[in-house]
Write a protein that binds this DNA or RNA. Structure first.
Lengths: 94, 94, 94, 94
DNA sequence: CACTGGAAAATGCCGC
DNA sequence: GCGGCATTTTCCAGTG
């Protein structure tokens, strides 16, 4: 049955193209990041430390999210509404 | 001198935010890629092979670029002008 | 229970020593390689190109292996027995 | 003049072979190290921590050597004999 | 002596 | 849940 194979081929082609397209974007962004670090260095910042800063903050975020997830879990367990994304109006000004 | 430090702080903040923003985007794209693979699997494709296909194609591209770079290196080593992008017509007589 | 801990300590010590010994050897070899490059340079070879030669050859080897791995992967995917290293006689009946 | 070129070629070949031989050895040792880590894990050790141990000790050694080098430098500056490798007999028992 | 590029190490991800 | 693999990050040597 030729059509089935042909269909699969077309599908495969589509998948490959989508993935390659996305990877291309990812690569572009990675390059952008590299550029920002270069700019930082040009402005006298120590990139090694800068990277540390980023990674520490990332870890903090992860912890925070974990805590929130945990909280959400508890709320669920208690039958209360959780997870109101983008909290109900109001201002944002840390 | 406070102003200088303050300036550096503002600059640092900006850099950190830009990087974090970009990393966020990168993460999103990575998730998209994952999704495509999931979709592929759902349609009966062997993701392991699909990944291999992608990686082989990537390698091929890299190889082409590598060859050009290599040629350029040799040209340099031989004292010949390389890398005339889209050589602007005209002759090159040794 | 002291003995168990003591045992673990001894074991740990052994592992650390073995690793450190191996890393030492590795370091020595790296130094040897450096020496060979120095000798090459002293004999008028362009080390940059020499390095390139080495890396290209390495890549070629890797490619060969990659092809075999790829073939093996396909064979697996097709449900065929692969990788019968110097097939040890005897039959293989599906 | 053919002979000169031929000689260079032979020399180049020799260099390449020596380097490749050494890199092969290095690779083997790296594999050995990996094996030791695997064995450690099989015996219930946390490889991540084990790696940390190794790296800390390495840093310690480096510092120690630096200190010794510095000491040696001072000794030299003072016209005193430095660097008696393998200290003169006596026991070693930390 | 700072920068670039390549090797090594560490991390995360996927399939079993 | 683990082991292997791919990617990413870190480190270091060579170069200008």
């Amino acid at each position: 049955m030729e059509t089935k194979t042909a269909f699969a081929q077309g599908q495969l082609r589509g998948l490959v193209e989508r993935i390659e397209r996305l990877e291309e974007e990812k690569k572009t962004i990675a390059a952008d990041i590299k550029e920002v670090y270069a700019e930082a260095k040009a402005n006298g910042f120590d990139t090694k430390i800068l990277r540390k800063v980023i990674s520490v903050r990332k870890k903090d975020h992860a912890e925070r999210e974990e805590e929130e997830a945990l909280l959400s879990l508890y709320m669920h367990a208690l039958g209360m509404a959780p997870d109101l994304e983008e909290a109900p109006a109001a201002a944002q000004q840390a």
